[in-house]
Each structure stands twice: as structure tokens, then as C-alpha cells.
Amino acid sequence: MIKDRLESWFPHPVLSVVLLICWLLLNNSFSAGHIVLGSVLSIIIPWFTSSFWPEKINIKNIKTFALFVVIVAYDIIVANLIVAKLILGSNDKLKPHFLEIQLDAKNDLTITLLASTISLTPGTVSSDLSMDKKTLLVHALHVEDIDKEIKTIKTRYEKPLMEVFES
């Protein structure tokens, strides 16, 4: 009963917290007035826009998610060094290739996050998702072994994301 009431008042708790933090950062102050105004806005805005957000975000395994964020941050830095080296090197050595990744993830959010992560990490950009949401087309700047690359993406990024949002 109380839980239902709470849910109708705060339809998206994560969104509310993010909005409050954004408001405080935008104003660049943590004074009491801004905290009150930000809290009021972060309660009202999710309430008004709740019809745009039909599905709920629930993070099931916060430890895995934190680990995933750390891995991705590390990969972004390493990937940038690798890409910088590839760009400054000779063009003829590069072996660009399209990879087709068969997705196990079904949730829209998981697929979106996976595609974004792929775009941010080692020499790969996600380019297209098939209509039935089962195949992701990825362009890689330089691949030696196609199967190995696909396997790395699946085990390194897709598995933790599925554990966090789907299991």
C-alpha cells in the first residue's frame, strides 16, 4: 500500500536524482535555496513526463555495474591510445571490416547501452541494428581475427550488461 503510493508519487526515482544533480551542477551552487528548488523540480518533472517513460529501469546487480563502468573507463583510455597509433600509422596496414554480432540481449535499454559502449571502445563503431533487434552491425577499424573480436565484445560487454539489467 505504502509502496504503491510511493511509486505513484515518484514514478522514476533514478531520473529524479539525476535531475537534482544536473540542476545543482548547472547553477554551480549547493545553497539551500537551490536544493529546495531543484528537489521540487525533480519531483514535478518526472510526474508530468511519466507517460513518455513507460518502462522502468531497475538495476539488479549494482556491484557488477560498478565493475563494468570501471572496465569501460579503462578501455576508453587504452582504446584511444590504440586508435591514435592506428590513425598516425600507415593507411595500408589497416584492415577495416564489418562485424555482425548476434545479440542475446532482448531489453531495449541493454541493447542501447551495448551499442554506445561499443562505439566508445577499441576501434569499433556500431552502425546498424537489424529490424528484429537480433543482429548488430559493427564497423571495426582494424581486426586481425574476426571471431575473436566478436567473442571479446560478447564476453566483455554484453554479459555484464545482461547480468545487470536482465537476469
Partner: peptide, 25 residues
């Protein structure tokens, strides 16, 4: 480096790699 990649690489899909990653970091 991102902009050098934009000019130097031969086709569009390879050019996409330079700006999206190097420039963001």
C-alpha cells in the same frame, strides 16, 4: 589526432572512428 584521422583515412566508415573517439577523450 581526431581531425588528422578525418582528413587522412580513405573511406567514410574509417573516418568515423577518428572524431568520435579521439575527440571525446
Amino acid at each position: 589526432v581526431g581531425s588528422i584521422g578525418l582528413v587522412k583515412l580513405p573511406n567514410f566508415f574509417m573516418r568515423l572512428h577518428g572524431p568520435t573517439k579521439a575527440t571525446t577523450l
